[in-house]
């Protein structure tokens, strides 16, 4: 569904990605793990059109979408939940969800998906009229994920959904990510530092190191890989 080939990105004169290639098959969960500064977020930002790629290509559904502006990529059903969540702080939970559905006009479908979001994260329903910026980090992450579902994506890219969230809550958020994949058939590219959890719910994994793909394998194989165990799974 998503095919990245030889993606190169630079910030000024500093090269952040040196030719990254990865594939995300339809219906799967693929994870991209790597240390701080490896270039995980950069990869997602280049795919979703937030930054320009210097080289390489992004194919989505067989179509070349390299360097399209971000709003056109979303329109194609490829949605990016950015690092740090980026909820609209002064808008209410409901308005944030409506922003997610910005490109849609099907009122009934929007109402239905909003209901689905509330089933997924009942906490959001309790706080429907609260300004998003006043919610806890975990609640904001739930909102960011729900908001992305509102755009009816076919492929979802999540950047570190576990960042700064208590382990209990992380587990429940990951359960919902699996549910989104299974029940709604949404393909997922998951960027994580929490390699343990990410490899547990994904079928394929890529290990990124200083802008290059170091390893690519099934998640199961990666979990057994001594190199991965030592560097990312705490031995």
């Amino acid at each position: 569904m998503l095919e990245i080939e030889n993606l190169e990105v630079s910030y000024g004169s500093i090269k952040a990605l040196h030719g990254v290639s990865l594939k995300v098959p339809q219906g799967s969960i693929v994870t991209l793990i790597g240390a701080n500064g490896a270039g995980k977020s950069t990869t997602l930002r280049a795919i979703s059109g937030l930054i320009k790629a210097r080289g390489g290509s992004v194919k989505y559904d067989g179509e070349d979408v390299t360097n399209l502006p971000a709003h056109k990529i979303v329109a194609k059903g490829l949605c990016h939940v950015p690092e740090g969540r980026m909820v609209f702080a002064n808008l209410t939970v409901e308005e944030n969800l409506r922003m997610g559905a910005y490109l849609r006009n099907d009122k009934a479908g929007i109402a239905e998906d909003m209901e689905f979001s509330f089933q997924m994260f009942p906490r959001l329903k309790e706080r429907i009229h609260q300004a998003a910026g006043t919610m806890s980090g975990g609640e904001q992450q739930m909102l960011a994920i729900a908001r992305s579902i509102m755009s009816k994506p076919r492929c979802l890219m999540l950047d570190e959904p576990s960042l700064g969230i208590a382990p209990m809550l992380v587990r429940s958020i990951f359960e919902q990510i699996v549910a989104i994949n299974k029940e709604r058939g949404i393909t997922i590219l998951l960027v994580e530092q929490n390699a343990n959890l990410a490899l547990a719910i994904s079928q394929h994994g890529y290990v990124l190191e200083t802008g290059k793909i170091l390893l690519a394998d099934s998640s199961e194989a990666l979990r057994k890989n001594p190199q991965v165990r030592e560097a990312y799974l705490g031995g």
Binding site: S48, A70, V74, A75, F88, G100, S151
Partner: peptide
């Protein structure tokens, strides 16, 4: 309003 709060996020919503 969304753009004024976070232009990156608004573009990711398709704005």
């Amino acid at each position: 309003r969304a753009l004024s709060l976070n232009p990156t996020a608004s573009s990711l919503m398709g704005v």
